[in-house]
């Protein structure tokens, strides 16, 4: 019924892998523990409780706020981040579980020396945003989608971006933006 696909959800395989790694490392907490994250190419250290989600640690401890807290329950995709290049919901993973992984947020790729990433540019060109609160999550999901599907059809875009929700109703613009970004990223024209 609802176009929520599996693309934005936490990959079961990755979770399983994590579970094994965790049991090997032993139990952490309760109470705050040192956590080392590789965030947007830089190593950052924080002291947080094992029960804290990556989303909350990014927003509350690291002031990385392009990642938004909306449903806080793995439904809306506003907290989308990339973990080793795969899109995941920041609200549905614990910060301690992604140590040693490459974590990329919207801040990590959206602007390079002030120049917008083609996905960002396409979102602006196609007015694929209104209040904008869901938009960084959409841009992260769209980038990951295009990284894995550089030549999407319009139907594939609808499936690939099915893990993100917008309340203002910007989907018409998002559809066009993702297709435009695909063309531009391959060296084609906007139109």
């Amino acid at each position: 019924m609802q176009g929520i696909g599996v693309t934005g959800a936490v990959s079961p395989a990755l979770l399983q892998e994590e579970a094994v790694a965790q049991s090997a490392a032993g139990v952490m907490g309760p109470g705050a523990v040192p956590v080392t994250l590789t965030l947007n190419g830089k190593v950052v250290k924080v002291t947080v409780e094992p029960r804290e989600t990556l989303l909350d640690v990014l927003r509350n401890n690291l002031d990385v706020t392009g990642v938004k807290r909306v449903c806080d329950r793995g439904t809306c995709g506003a907290c989308s981040v990339l973990v080793n290049g795969k899109v995941m919901y920041g609200c549905s993973i614990l910060a301690i579980d992604v140590q040693g992984k490459q974590i990329t947020t919207i801040e990590g790729f959206a602007l390079t020396n002030g120049k917008p990433h083609p996905v960002v540019e396409a979102f602006v060109n196609n007015d694929a945003q209104q209040c904008g609160y869901c938009t960084p999550g959409f841009v992260v999901a769209a980038k990951a989608f295009l990284d894995h599907n550089p030549n999407p059809t319009s139907d594939q875009v609808k499936d690939g971006l099915g893990g993100n929700l917008c309340r203002c109703g910007t989907y018409m613009g998002v559809r066009k933006a993702v297709l435009e970004a695909a063309r531009v990223m391959k060296g084609g024209s906007r139109g």
Binding site: R59, N60, D63, T65, G66, V67, K68, R69, T105, I106, E107, A110, L111, P116, H117, V120, E121, F123, V124, D127, A128, Q129, G132, Y133, T135, P136, V139
Partner: peptide, 19 residues
Amino acid sequence: RLDGVEKAAGRARYNSDLN
């Protein structure tokens, strides 16, 4: 829109983003 890049790039600060 004038604030398009700022929003799409996650740079727009909503008051819920304030620390």
